[in-house]
Amino acid sequence: MSTTTPTSDVARSVPAALTSRTRPKRPGPLATTWTFTWRAMLKIKHDPDQIYSSFILPIMFTLVFTYLFGGALAGSTGDYLQFLMPGILVMTVIMINMYTGISLNTDITKGIFDRFRSLSIWRPGILVGALLGDALRYTIALVVVTALGLLLGFRPGGGVLGVLGTILFLQLFAFCLGWMWNAAGLVLKSPESVNQLSSVVLFPLVFASNVFVQPETMPGWLQVVVNVNPITHAVTAVRGLTGGTLTGEQLTWALVACGALLVVFAPLSMYLFRAKSLR
């Protein structure tokens, strides 16, 4: 070979791969969304550590609250566990939920978000697909935490159907709450700041709810906070579902809470998304 040969194999083989310019038909909204869902599921496959770490906090809270405070709060640890588990299930989903915002922010800061935005695709699919992909994450975590509860003596009166209903309802709740984290992911500077915001927002929200205790003994002003907290309504619905005692009113309030989150944060996220670019 002469000294003027191109410097790499790349130079000889690339031209052949570039001759085809056939562009397939632009994918529809469903196909686009499904592709982003697939991407989110691949991330779970490649990074299972994130799943493990998502159990740790709920498991810790279950053990600490049941065995340390359970007797004092409900007379016996067994009774308290029946009360606590539904709350812990909601908390499990909430704690994983913020990863939605962290992954979106990582996409933005690392640059791949720009590539997605430079494609001619149905853009909400980027956000919706990621939220749907997270559903797998929630399901895995909920199954593990429920199994732990059963092991410790949690006996849901609603049976298998109640537990399945809970998982289904919490998917909806997480999908709606996830838009809050999408908005945060679009506004904040770095994945770390999303993480910090989540601890500042989540802990007060989880404690100022009926996850750990019924609000009757709280001061009046705090009861007001607890009653407007969407988490409270989600927990009430899950208690109803797992206990087999769900009333129409409880379900309605829970769905209103989901709807409120969706109506506020989904348009806000899409607005922030568009504000970043042309249309």
Partner: peptide, 13 residues
Amino acid sequence: SLTGQYASVDEQL
């Protein structure tokens, strides 16, 4: 197509 200043690919995939 755009290739940004920082690699615009997904590091986890």
